Amino acid sequence: EPREEEAEKYIKRANGDYDKAQELAKKDGNEEIAEAIKEYKKR
């Protein structure tokens, strides 16, 4: 799923820090991806 791939990219950029990844996504205006990262975190 493209959303998950995007989320993974942010998580990698944030060195595995989900909260930081979420912030990066929000900064880029990717609210949807920020949500996907939140879902990811719950797994």
Rank of each mutant, 00 (worst) to 15 (best):
E1T: 13
K20T: 07
I11M: 06
D19G: 05
P2H: 14
N30P: 00
K20I: 13
E6G: 07
N15A: 07
Q22S: 08
G29L: 05
N15I: 02
D19N: 07
E39M: 08
E5S: 09
R3D: 13
E31C: 07
E5Q: 12
Y18N: 02
K9N: 11
K26D: 05
E1A: 13
K26Y: 13
E39V: 07
I11L: 12
K42M: 11
E8K: 13
Y10E: 02
K12W: 10
D17W: 02
E35W: 07
E5D: 12
E35P: 02
A21Q: 00
D19H: 05
K42G: 09
K20M: 13
P2G: 14
I37V: 05
K42P: 05
E8Y: 12
E4R: 08
K41P: 04
I33P: 01
E32R: 10
A25C: 03
L24P: 00
A14Y: 02
N15R: 07
A36L: 15
D17I: 03
L24D: 06
K12H: 10
D19T: 07
E6D: 09
E6N: 07
R13I: 12
K41N: 05
A21C: 00
N30Y: 14
N30C: 04
E6R: 06
R43N: 13
E35H: 08
D28T: 02
E8W: 13
E39G: 06
A25K: 01
E4G: 08
I11C: 04
E31S: 09
N15K: 08
P2N: 14
A34E: 05
E35A: 10
R3H: 14
K41M: 09
R3Y: 15
E32Q: 12
K12T: 09
N30G: 04
E23F: 07
A7L: 14
K20D: 05
N15M: 06
K12P: 02
E23G: 05
R3K: 12
K27C: 04
E1K: 13
G16A: 02
E4Y: 14
E32V: 09
D28L: 03
N30F: 14
K42T: 12
Y40F: 10
E39F: 06
A7G: 03
A34R: 04
K41E: 08
E31W: 15
K26N: 08
I33E: 03
I37R: 01
I11K: 01
D19M: 06
R13T: 08
E8S: 06
E1N: 15
K12V: 09
R43A: 13
K27V: 09
E31N: 12
K26S: 09
Y10R: 00
E8D: 07
I33M: 07
Y18P: 04
A25M: 00
E5Y: 11
A36D: 05
R3G: 13
A34V: 15
E1Q: 11
I37W: 00
K27N: 12
G29Q: 05
K42E: 15
E1M: 13
E8L: 15
K38E: 15
Y18F: 13
Y40T: 06
K27D: 10
D19A: 07
E35D: 10
K20H: 07
Y10G: 01
K41L: 08
I37N: 01
R13L: 14
K41F: 08
K38Y: 10
L24Q: 09
K42R: 12
Q22E: 14
E32W: 12
E23I: 08
E8A: 10
A14T: 05
K41A: 15
K9F: 09
R13P: 03
I37P: 00
K27Q: 14
G29A: 04
A25N: 01
L24A: 08
L24Y: 08
E8V: 13
L24M: 14
Y40K: 06
K27M: 13
R43Q: 14
E39A: 11
K41I: 08
K42Q: 13
G16Y: 09
E8I: 15
E23W: 10
G29W: 02
E31Y: 14
E31L: 14
K20P: 01
R13N: 08
D17A: 03
Q22A: 10
A36C: 06
E39I: 08
D28V: 02
K41T: 05
A21E: 00
E6L: 13
A34F: 06
E39H: 06
R13F: 11
A34G: 04
R43C: 07
L24E: 08
A25S: 02
E35V: 08
R43L: 14
A36V: 13
A36Q: 11
K42A: 12
K38F: 10
A7H: 04
I11P: 01
Y10C: 00
E4S: 11
N15L: 07
E39S: 06
D28M: 03
K27R: 13
Y18M: 07
P2I: 14
N15D: 09
A36R: 07
D17H: 04
E39Y: 06
P2M: 14
K9Y: 12
E23L: 08
R3Q: 12
N15W: 06
K9E: 14
E23M: 10
K12A: 12
A34L: 11
I33A: 14
Q22T: 09
K20V: 14
E23Q: 10
A25T: 01
G29I: 01
A36E: 08
D19E: 10
A34C: 03
G16M: 04
A14R: 00
P2Y: 15
K12L: 11
E32I: 09
A14I: 00
E5K: 12
G29Y: 04
P2T: 15
E39D: 09
K27F: 12
K41S: 11
A34T: 05
G29S: 04
R43Y: 12
Y10N: 01
Y40H: 10
D17Y: 02
D28E: 12
A14M: 03
E8R: 13
A14V: 04
K38M: 13
E4L: 14
K20R: 10
E35Q: 10
R43H: 12
K27H: 10
I33C: 00
Y40R: 06
K26H: 10
D28G: 03
I37M: 03
E39C: 05
E6S: 10
I37Y: 01
Y18W: 08
Q22R: 06
K42I: 13
I37L: 05
K38I: 11
A14W: 00
